Simulated assay, not measured.
Amino acid sequence: MKIIRSQAFQADRAWGAMDIAKMNGITTRLHWTDQPYKWHINDGEEVFVVLDGQVEMHYREHGAEQSVMLNVGDIFYASVGTEHVAHPIGEARVLVIETEGSV
Rank of each mutant, 00 (worst) to 15 (best):
V85S: 03
M23F: 14
T99Q: 15
V49E: 08
S67T: 05
N24G: 10
V103W: 00
P36H: 05
E100M: 05
V85G: 04
Q7I: 13
V68M: 05
I97E: 00
H58T: 06
W32T: 01
R93S: 06
V94Q: 07
Q66C: 07
E45N: 03
R5C: 10
V85C: 14
G63V: 02
R29P: 04
A8N: 15
R93T: 02
R5T: 09
A17V: 06
V50T: 09
M57E: 00
F48V: 06
A8M: 12
M69P: 08
I97C: 02
I89R: 12
H87M: 05
Q35I: 00
S102G: 13
M18R: 15
D52G: 08
A17P: 04
H31D: 03
R60K: 04
E46G: 09
A92V: 10
H40M: 02
V55G: 12
A64L: 09
R93F: 02
G81Q: 06
E91Q: 12
P36Y: 04
E56V: 14
F48L: 05
A64H: 10
E98S: 00
W15Q: 09
G81S: 04
M57H: 02
T28C: 14
G44F: 01
Q35C: 11
P88M: 02
I26E: 07
Y77F: 15
L30C: 02
K2Y: 06
Q7Y: 08
G53I: 09
A21C: 08
V47K: 14
V49L: 14
I89Q: 06
H58S: 03
D19I: 03
I3M: 09
N71P: 05
D52Y: 07
Q66Y: 09
A17I: 07
E61M: 02
G101E: 01
F76V: 01
L70Q: 09
R29F: 00
H31N: 04
G53T: 08
F48C: 04
A11N: 09
A21N: 13
N42R: 11
T33H: 12
T82Q: 13
N42F: 11
K38G: 14
K38V: 15
E61R: 05
E98H: 05
V72E: 12
P36Q: 01
E100L: 11
H58D: 01
A21F: 12
V94T: 07
W32A: 11
E98M: 01
A14I: 10
W32I: 01
A21I: 08
E100G: 04
H87E: 10
K38P: 09
G53A: 02
I3K: 13
W39Y: 11
V94I: 11
M57A: 05
H62Y: 02
F48A: 11
F76P: 03
I41A: 10
E45P: 09
S79C: 10
V50K: 00
Y59E: 01
R60P: 08
I75N: 07
W32R: 04
V47T: 15
T99F: 08
K22N: 07
M23S: 14
R29W: 11
A64M: 13
D19N: 13
A8L: 15
A86F: 03
G90V: 03
A78N: 03
M69N: 02
R29M: 10
D74L: 01
E83M: 11
V47A: 15
E56H: 08
V94H: 03
N42G: 14
T27F: 11
N71C: 08
T99A: 14
S67H: 11
V47L: 15
